Simulated scan of single mutants.
Amino acid sequence: MGSFKGHVLPGTLFLLVGVWHIWSSVVRYVGNPKTFRVRVWNPVPGFDGRLKYLELYLVAIGAFIDLCIELLYSTHLKFVADGVSNPSHLNNLEHSGMLLMFFIFGLVALLSEKTRFLPLPEGALCLIAATAFSVEYLLFYFHSTTHKGLEGYYHLLLVLLIGLCIMSTVTGAFLPTSFPVDLCSGIAITLQGLWFYQTAFTLYGPMMPHGCWLKESQISCHSKDSEVRGELLANFQLFSLVLSVLVAVVGSYAVAASRYGHSELRSLHAIQDGLDQD
């Protein structure tokens, strides 16, 4: 069983990284489509380069802080009970494994970019990021905390979004010049962050569906019909988030094209218009 804070914290990290990825991908593409390359992380411009690696620091430090909360604070260091792994904290240990992988990705990327000890191409960093997403996927798919009913449905939708993160990141390693792939990666990460928020507010906050309730760390519904209505509401919530993100992406593209659009971009659009007319 999770908690409101336990979903909001990782959701915030994914949301910040995803939104920044979308904006950076759009700006880099409209700036010069011919030189566009997929990036698994995006530097922050300006400030004399002092914030260039802010995204990687956010991933590494954020994952490390969340790791410490799951591994040290939530477990109270009671890893063993009666000579075996403490069953009360297996979910915390699983979360720690997931967070460790994102911390390793952030650390490896920083070492690759800032030192000469681990020079890795962008494709390799994409595969390392995909490995972290894969561990997250396996965690939520084979969770020791059995997700059933409405709670299970919300986590099933989360697993689907994580799968989209894996596919888009892996594809980026093999199609390093594809703008749609890079943009899809940012959209998937953003949706994952938003869905963490949606799960927190629905299952552990004020948006609990009518006929369902949270009691003794369990989500229960008055009847099967109430549970089905909750699942239909989850479908509508996900659709609303997808639509909102797509509208925001189109808006960001329009803004970026008007401010940073390269002449090459206009020529590509002119060529495409000519092909459509033919």
Rank of each mutant, 00 (worst) to 15 (best):
R28F: 09
Q237T: 14
S226A: 06
S96V: 02
Y29N: 00
M208N: 06
S3H: 05
S3W: 01
S244W: 07
G152V: 06
E227I: 01
T169H: 00
H210V: 15
D278A: 09
M208F: 07
G83V: 10
Y204K: 02
V19D: 04
G172T: 11
E55R: 15
A234V: 07
A132Y: 02
Q192N: 12
K78L: 12
V242C: 15
F142D: 10
N92W: 05
Y29M: 06
L156I: 07
L125T: 04
H76V: 10
R39Y: 13
L139I: 13
E136A: 15
F102G: 10
F142K: 04
R39D: 13
Y57M: 08
V84P: 01
C68Q: 05
Q198I: 01
G230M: 03
I128T: 07
T169C: 06
Q277K: 13
A257S: 00
Q198Y: 02
S258Q: 13
P87Y: 10
Y137M: 11
S244M: 11
V17M: 03
L127I: 14
G123R: 02
K78F: 13
T75V: 02
T75R: 04
A248I: 06
L175P: 08
E216W: 11
L110K: 01
H95V: 03
R39C: 13
G211R: 01
L9S: 09
N235E: 07
T131S: 07
E231Q: 13
L118Y: 01
F79Y: 09
S226T: 00
F201D: 04
S96E: 02
Y29A: 07
S85L: 15
G186E: 02
